[in-house]
């Protein structure tokens, strides 16, 4: 969904750029709480994974493809603030190195593909986990739902920007219908990739999934008790 140069007029591009800068500023401050010696490398690897997965366009309808956006995935794996930064770094590198996504549209792309996907995706994920039982299946299911909704949300955000500052005179209602329609399909692909990836990490290292930290604690207690034969006291000097 990388917006090229020329789709949006200067005022909307500049405004979206300001939103992107503000969003990244908030994310930089918030990411400090999410990142430590162990999660910082994980976040770098997550950004690299999002970049790699974005290269894999999958067919969604005749003559149309889609690819992962990755906002929901990154937010669930490494936290929402860091997730915004992960996708933003990917978009920046794509625009600068690969000529993918216009330079003047970078603010639009960060707003639509990093901020909106993380806000909507991670918000959905947290809401669902609040009402669902604290199990791995719930985390996987919530990841699916978060991802599936994040993509049409992103399409709606683009359409709204286009309604305000689009450069071509087009029927905006038809654009909205077409954008949401195709991005619901792409959202299903996004959801499959997100749920499989989150489930895979949960299977081998559940402690590394930021969005699953609620269900880590009981697991730790259960495994620590029989081993230590008493209160689990870290004996590290």
């Amino acid at each position: 969904m990388h917006v090229p140069d020329g789709f949006l007029d200067a005022p909307v591009s500049v405004a979206a750029g300001a939103v992107a800068v503000a969003g990244i500023g908030v994310a930089l401050r918030g990411a400090r709480r999410e990142l430590d010696d162990r999660t910082a490398p994980l976040a770098g690897l997550t950004a690299a994974f999002v970049f790699a997965a974005q290269m894999i366009n999958f067919p969604v309808a005749s003559g149309t493809s889609g690819h992962l956006l990755g906002g929901a995935l990154a937010a669930i794996l490494v936290g929402p603030y860091t997730g915004i930064l992960c996708v933003s770094v990917v978009l920046l590198m794509q625009a600068l190195l690969f000529a993918d996504g216009g330079l003047t549209a970078l603010g639009v792309n960060i707003s639509v593909m990093a901020l909106v996907t993380v806000l909507v995706g991670y918000g959905t994920f947290r809401l669902l986990l609040r009402v669902l039982p604290k199990t791995r299946a719930s985390v996987a299911g919530s990841s699916f739902a978060a991802a599936v909704i994040s993509v049409p949300a992103s399409a709606v955000a683009f359409t709204l920007l286009y309604a305000v500052g689009g450069t071509a005179d087009v029927p905006i209602a038809k654009v909205a219908t077409a954008m949401v329609g195709v991005h619901v399909l792409i959202g299903v692909g996004e959801a499959l990739i997100t749920a499989v990836t989150v489930s895979s990490v949960l299977a081998v290292r559940p402690d590394l999934v930021h969005g699953a930290h609620d269900l880590i604690k009981p697991l730790e207690l259960r495994t620590a008790e029989p081993q230590a034969g008493g209160p689990a006291e870290p004996s590290r000097a």
Binding site: M1, H2, V3, P4, D5, G6, F7, M55, I56, N57, F58, P59, V60, G63, T64, S65, G66, H67, G102, A155, F158, Y162, G166, T167, A168, V170, P171, K174, V175, A178, M179, V182, H183, L185, I186
Partner: peptide, 22 residues
């Protein structure tokens, strides 16, 4: 990977948005 246009590219082509692409 599929070489077909992605969702935005396809809609932009179909609806005349791409005419202004730079």
């Amino acid at each position: 990977a599929s070489a077909d246009p992605d969702g935005l590219e396809k809609v932009a082509e179909d609806k005349g948005i791409s005419a202004k692409e730079k």
